Computed example of a mutant assay.
Amino acid sequence: MSKRDEIIAAAVRLAEGAQPGQANLSVRAVAKEAGVGPSTLRHYFPSQADLHEAVALRSIDTIINDFSIADRTLEPADRLYECCAQFLPTHEHREVQLETWFSMHLHALGDEKRAVSRRLLEHGHRVTYDSLRRWLNLLAEEGHLDPAEAAPAATALFTTIDGIALHSIITPETMTVEAGHEQVKWTIARILAL
């Protein structure tokens, strides 16, 4: 592992070990956790914003779970749904999840777009799409869908998930948590129908 990766790993450990909203990612705290001096940390991350962005990007890379997608003893639709459900709002955190989703998109668009928000959003989209595509390719290898359909199916699922988030904000009385999950199940059923 490179020194840069060791510093990021140390910052991630500090962030994960802290109470929500209480992570101390100061230069001193991260340098101490990584076992390096502050000047070494500054060599790799000239500003605290650079460090925070690297931690956010690393978190995006590790947050998506493959669950039981490779377990052939389970129904393919159930495996794919389990993986896709992690992108949907939950009852206990719905407001915060939707606010974060909307805020990231808002900050990445328009004349006032923030470059870091744009990079984080693009990276998150790429990692999400790659995960959807990987899961669908696995199911295609098992014969549950035409391999040529994996890429458009990944786009369809991604679009469905983003649409659910948007409709959950605009019409929360009809796009409930349950309705969102049912829509994903419906989409998966259509994708896997041979």
Rank of each mutant, 00 (worst) to 15 (best):
T73R: 13
V96M: 14
H107Y: 06
D111K: 14
E112S: 13
D78R: 13
H91N: 08
T100W: 06
A77L: 02
H105R: 15
R79W: 02
H107Q: 13
A115L: 09
V116I: 14
E92K: 09
H91S: 11
A108L: 04
E99C: 05
E112A: 12
L109P: 06
A115T: 11
E92Y: 10
P89S: 08
C84T: 04
F87A: 06
F102C: 06
S103C: 00
F102Q: 07
S103M: 14
R72C: 06
S117W: 07
V116A: 12
S117V: 02
T100L: 14
R79M: 04
G110A: 03
M104T: 06
D111A: 13
R94A: 15
Q86Y: 03
S103F: 04
M104C: 04
R79V: 05
C84N: 05
G110F: 05
T73G: 10
P76Q: 01
L98F: 07
H105A: 00
L98Q: 14
V96A: 13
C84Q: 02
A108S: 09
P76V: 00
R94M: 08
A115N: 10
L98A: 07
E95H: 10
P89V: 02
D78P: 02
F87D: 05
C83T: 08
T73D: 15
A77R: 11
G110V: 01
V96E: 14
E82K: 07
F87Q: 09
M104G: 11
E95M: 10
M104S: 09
P76G: 01
H93F: 06
K113G: 06
H91I: 03
T73E: 10
